[in-house]
Design a protein around this nucleic acid. Structure first.
Lengths: 249, 249
DNA sequence: CCAATATTTCGAACGTGTTCAAAACCCCCT
DNA sequence: AGGGGGTTTTGAACACGTTCGAAATATTGG
């Protein structure tokens, strides 16, 4: 559950510096991160200054920068936290369900629920994540652990369903990443969603999920064979490499 | 051709201020924009300071802010410019061609060509565009003119092809916006593309275009009817409203 | 227990985007 | 010509993210 925090944290540290040694160090780091997250939620990302975070946490500005290379890296904390919270929540809610569409819907709904409290500064987060040169981009190497966690969840969404055995192996292999892309689309929708309680995003999930399920279902039939084959190779050659899966050997 | 610059510029001005009155004003504004674009290309967005832009243009910092509400708004200039250059280039290259896939490929290739010289600071641009609260977002109201120009181009891509008469009216009505979304995907791919001369993006266009064409083609057949109907209503209810097309009455 | 070394903390200083009140300029009216 | 309105221009000042050398503190080795 927490096994991914260690490597994730390493990437937040400036340069190639060694990991913290003491307990106190660990405490300080956690204190700064928690304070930052609290202030972000209270005032939003922009309105929260590094000076305010430091002051509120009772440390100096320089100290905050000792643990986090930049203000943006504080967001990585939120990112990791959410990824794990989402995976756990989705798993418990899916337990026992067999219908693929239902499982997928649960996984996506769960994300919207877990992310709800952060919607206020989601735009700032997204802005950072959208920078390809930033290690916070969902496509970056640094995000690989979090992305892997999420993809693994969708692997379970599929494999826990009664649809999995009916699919051909090659497609089943591609699907987890595709479903993760579906989540990315939902995230995009969510970020731009201005309706109260992101009601519209929830409807979007409700509507798009059965459709995704149907497309996957239909892909088994003969008529769709050629188009599915094309889609598969397009994804394999152009999408997967971009999101950190090596091309097949 | 230039008819969209007037309203576009209005949105760059701070507050609800009136449009510039004199010729000199117009010249100053153009000078600042050109200088900024040149420096962006030379040194990149981050390395170009507002002070440097002002100095190079021979004006004061405050003066630059009189014409552009923020550094980011200088990018709007690039955006508008590119949109029009792309539309013109694509139109001339499509002239005479009738095959839909070919026309679509030309339109997308043309974009990659027009954008090539800006790839260096594309990430900065994209970062800004990704902020939903920013007026520079491709989904924002302020970007509506540029988006409309682009959508109109794809309208022509379709209607100039021999495929158009074969499609049902409702689908044909939706397609321009969908093709624009295809462009947005290409843009996303391009922004993250690190291969020399964005070679990979060009391949992606070459591969994805015929597939899009085939999907559209197949949509006419009976078996696909239900899924197409679902997709249409999903797009109509959830995608178009988000990108500024009012829902059907 | 002391010295030496490593880790952590500090806060003043720097560079940058942005603001704003005042000055300069321009044009029209009497 | 002079003055009064709007428009344009100025540059000093501000706030914030970030850096960095030095101080404080902890850890280790003899």
């Amino acid at each position: 559950m927490d096994d991914a925090t260690e490597p994730a944290r390493a990437s937040e540290l400036p340069g190639g510096r060694a990991l913290p040694k003491t307990d106190k160090s660990e405490q300080t780091r956690a204190l700064i991160l928690e304070t930052a997250m609290r202030l972000f939620k209270e005032r939003g990302y922009d309105k929260t200054t590094m000076r305010a975070i430091a002051a509120e946490a009772g440390v100096s500005v320089g100290n905050a920068y000792y643990y986090f290379a930049s203000k943006e890296f504080l967001i990585q904390g939120f990112y990791d936290q959410m990824t794990h919270a989402h995976a756990a929540d989705a798993r418990s809610r899916m337990a026992g369900k067999k219908d693929f569409a239902e499982r997928l819907g649960i996984a996506l709904d769960s994300w919207v629920d877990c992310a709800a409290e952060y919607h206020g500064f989601a735009s700032q987060f997204f802005r950072t994540a959208a920078d390809p040169t930033s290690s916070l981009s969902p496509f970056s190497n640094e995000s690989h652990p979090a992305r892997a966690t999420a993809v693994e969840l969708f692997h379970e969404v599929l494999n826990g369903s009664d649809l999995a055995p009916k699919l051909d192996a090659e497609l089943a292999d591609l699907l987890p990443e595709l479903l993760w892309l579906h989540l990315m689309v939902v995230v995009l929708y969510w970020v731009f969603d201005r309706t109260p309680d992101t009601e519209r995003t929830r409807e979007f999930v409700t509507r798009s999920t059965p459709m995704a399920a149907r497309v996957i279902n239909l892909s088994r039939y003969r008529v769709f064979r050629p188009i599915v084959r094309d889609a598969k190779s397009l994804i394999q050659d152009f999408i997967l490499p971009t999101i950190g899966r090596t091309a097949k050997p």
